[in-house]
């Protein structure tokens, strides 16, 4: 198990390194400068600023310098917000994003599981058709369209929930709801399919032949075996949520990390772009890792082969 973890950790660090490199050079291809009104600055002023932030150096040197700092855990300072460290900006901004994301993921998973399980247990009923239709809709409507609709009808017309900004806890509900629809749809569709397949397996008939009640069959035999593939889905879903926040935060004017990310790209705030990208990537890689570990816990067959003898 330890060998497995070490190997995985090595792969994770390598991945991050590659992402950092690619992002750095791609970012340097962006046209424009980090200064808000470059037309009003004299050439001398620009040269001075460039020198101060090391932007007068050739790109490979800048890259080497950045990576050197990165290895020491230093994400640098913002070019846009006078010398504020990038890590501090991320920490300040992550709160709302994390709240929205987690809420969407957890709420979405629960509702999705409930819908999917009931559908699978009562296949080809009105409920089943309803939830399958809902799932297809939920997967095909982009979250930003849904976010705008929710904002307009629930926030502006009905005034049930605040349509934007970040003032109280209730402000987080609409963005979470907008993000959770894709989770509900994906999880419901997936667990329905998996459960129907597992229900057709012979070991389910074995369990029934033992006299196990339908409740016991579902709880002890069907659910666990159907959850395994669903857990794999959670990785990409969590990533979808992370990228989803980028747009949804903008629509609801939530001061989250996603909004900051977009702002920093607009203003060519190089160090913030790098920092946030790396942060998102690390989050993604970590999610995939957690999913893999969970997979092993749920499925004894994987434990044996990947984690060595347990």
């Amino acid at each position: 198990m330890i060998r497995f973890l070490l190997k995985r950790f090595g792969i994770m660090v390598t991945t991050l390194f590659i992402i950092a490199t690619a992002t750095f050079f791609l970012m340097k291809l962006l046209p424009g400068t980090p200064y808000s009104n470059p037309d009003k600055l004299s050439e001398q002023q620009i040269a001075m600023m460039n020198q101060k932030y090391g932007l007068d150096q050739p790109v490979p040197i800048q890259y080497a310098r950045y990576m050197g700092n990165l290895i020491q855990g230093d994400l640098g300072v913002s070019l846009h917000y006078k010398g504020r460290p990038v890590s501090q900006i991320i920490l300040e901004r992550i709160g709302p994003s994390a709240l929205i994301g987690f809420q969407a993921l957890i709420f979405g998973s629960f509702i999705g599981l409930a819908l999917g399980i009931i559908s699978a247990l009562k296949p080809n009923t009105l409920f089943d058709y309803g939830s399958v239709t809902l799932a297809v809709l939920g997967m095909s409507i982009p979250s930003f369209v849904l976010a705008s609709l929710l904002q307009y009808y629930i926030g502006v017309k009905l005034k049930w929930l605040p349509p934007g900004l970040w003032e109280s806890y209730t402000s987080s509900l609409l963005p979470s709801l907008a993000l959770s629809v894709i989770v509900i749809a994906t999880v419901a569709r997936f667990i329905r399919g998996e459960m129907l397949e597992v229900l057709g397996q012979e070991y389910i008939m074995t369990a029934r032949a033992k006299g196990v009640t339908e409740w016991g069959v579902v709880m002890r035999h069907v659910l666990r075996n159907s959850l395994i593939p669903v857990v794999t889905m959670m990785g990409p879903l969590a990533v979808g949520i992370i990228t989803g926040t980028l747009v949804v935060e903008k629509i609801f004017s939530v001061p989250g990390l996603g909004e900051q990310f977009i702002l920093s790209i607009m203003s060519k705030d190089y160090s913030v772009i790098m920092g946030v990208t790396l942060f998102y990537s690390a989050l993604f890689i970590l999610t995939v890792f957690v999913v893999d570990v969970l997979y092993g816990i749920l499925d004894p067959r994987i434990r044996e082969t990947e984690g060595g003898r347990t």
Binding site: T206, H221, R224, P300
Partner: peptide
């Protein structure tokens, strides 16, 4: 091969 629950 299929009549036993693989995760129990």
């Amino acid at each position: 091969m299929t009549s036993l629950n693989p995760t129990m």
